[in-house]
Design a protein around this nucleic acid. Structure first.
Lengths: 331, 331
DNA sequence: TTGTATGCGTTATCAA
DNA sequence: TTGATAACGCATACAA
């Protein structure tokens, strides 16, 4: 049997209530009994059972992170950031992934909420229904979003519009006229990046053409290879590509170009997105948009703590991170 | 207020006990009341509170994964594998990382144990004291290790000796004579890989030289850059490097070589370790040892389930995975 | 300053 | 087949 406060109480000759008060270092316990209880706790190797505590307190000290899967660079970096700041607080991290589960996303969120599995949630790149989110508010379970934005909920995001504008503008200033775009096929991110791309074109008096857009699903290396063929087929004069679908896809694109004897940046310039390690390692090294993902995770955790601790002004905060264009050899 | 079995009971006109029995679909409840209760559960949107359940059952349905840091590719891939199989079971994942915590590793493990935070643990690449582990056994909390081995505990590991042998042998067969080794500075892995490296040298009649070894701490990109300078300084004739510290470090090494005008594989051949997906994307692409990390994670989870479910023969099982040498352009 | 009593949400035992 | 009651480990309001 595990030792409980009862055992300590019996040993010291006080009641469980007294022991409990010592543990939560109440002011109204005499130093003498405090010492005796503490001594017994050490001797008997007592540790409070967090389930008992949770039940009476209505608090789990767990933070749930929900994402579609955790093996993506974005999710990984976010979790790393969250973890970094989590360490300063007495919370644990529980990960819930939705991809490949029998349960759908909404049911999962409901379960976390109603089964009382966490005091707060960080939801990464997932769209959630507004009504369900209101339920979280009602049950006072704090929620912070990363990337996808829900009205009236705190969110950490990235200025995708400006990012896409910067990338596109960089091409234009370098006299590139036929700028393709590789982009994800869904989500707010993709919309915003498309928006920034269009904005830059129109700002510099260039025409937007639908055939310049290639959408991808997986953000994979292979997606980049396919994109090259598809874009070239439709646009013989293609001289630049902004790969808003990430660096990995951009590198897939470069790899395919190399095989076809297309020179980068001579024939086609390319800009990636994210600035992962690899961007600096490819040949040519990749010009890209740097996104401070880990910092975004850290910020999301801090925001969550503020909401849990009751700071009202944090409840609707939207924190946006600004892009940085890292110029290397591919443009 | 959250709805509890009491609310359901009141609404239906039965006792909480009956509702509980319905939820756990006991056989001895009449279909009629079963239906009424189920209907009320749906109407009132009831979900069982897992904390209440845990308290009486003495079971948390949580699996803890402990590692020094989850942002490493090894830990990430392991978690991914664990996650994959976890989905088939009614368990949740809790992540505990030790690096950078105020608390040391041993205290963390003690906390997980005595606070009753998980029914089972998977410990990744961490050395634990035998006595403490015996405590887990006594409290019947299941434990499975990945990578580090503790006597009498189930472990999933990788044949590091053979892996290092294969890599070193590959160089030798390609007429490389001065083979450097980049390797972590602690842990069983490093020892085993060093062992395999030495074994290959001696098997092919080459002399082992201490100055051919460069140890690293972080397994980082930067470590690879430093390794190049250090190794070259001590060995002018260096013509091969087995980077047992992982692909990222190997890529760092290549990057530094590129800057110095050293040709890979012309001047120096390099072999990495892990086969992360970056390995195939670098220029030149990286020859490396493939380690089925996700599969190891899956296996660890299955083993853990077996122990939790009381299969005695699983309690001392050691499952070893075999290496595969993936030959690409860097050798 | 400490003890008594009660409750958190659930399950299990026993009786009806 | 269902109800009454106690128990899990802990915290807290109130009484002493």
């Amino acid at each position: 049997m595990r030792v409980t406060i009862k055992d300590i109480a019996k040993k010291v000759g006080v009641t469980p209530a007294t022991v409990s008060m010592v543990i939560n270092n109440s002011q109204k316990i005499s130093q003498a009994t405090k010492d005796r209880v503490l001594k017994a706790i050490k001797e008997m190797n007592y540790h409070p059972n967090y389930i008992g505590r949770s039940l009476v307190k209505g608090k789990t000290n767990n933070i749930a992170v929900v994402a579609s899967f955790f093996a993506s660079l974005f999710a990984l970096e976010s979790v790393r950031g969250i973890e970094l700041n989590l360490r300063k607080k007495p919370y644990n991290l529980i990960l819930y992934s939705t991809k490949g589960m029998d349960e759908n996303e909404e049911d999962l969120l409901k379960r976390i909420l109603y089964e009382k599995r966490a005091d707060g949630l960080i939801i990464i790149s997932l769209k959630a229904k507004k009504e369900l989110m209101e339920e979280f508010k009602k049950e006072s379970v704090a929620v912070v979003f990363i990337e996808e934005l829900i009205e009236d909920f705190p969110t950490v995001k990235f200025n995708n519009i400006k990012a896409a504008f910067l990338a596109t503008e960089h091409f234009i200033k370098n006299k590139r006229k036929n700028i393709g775009l590789i982009i994800g096929n869904k989500g707010m991110n993709a919309e915003e990046r498309l928006h920034g791309y269009k904005e830059a074109l129109s700002h510099y008096g260039l025409e937007f053409k639908q055939e310049m857009i290639h959408t991808v699903i997986d953000y994979s290396f292979e997606d980049g290879e396919k994109a090259l063929n598809s874009l070239l087929e439709k646009n013989k004069k293609l001289d630049a590509v902004f790969c808003a679908a990430g660096d990995i896809t951009a590198i897939g694109f470069m790899d395919a170009a190399k095989e076809k004897g297309i020179n980068i940046p001579g024939d086609i310039g390319i800009i990636g997105f994210d600035d992962v390690y690899l961007a600096n390692l490819s040949t040519p090294s990749l010009t890209t948009i740097r996104q401070p993902i880990a910092k975004m995770g850290m910020q999301a955790f801090d925001l969550l703590m503020e909401v849990i601790e009751g700071k009202e002004e944090s409840e609707k905060k939207i924190i946006s991170f600004e892009p940085e264009l890292i110029i290397r050899e591919s443009t």
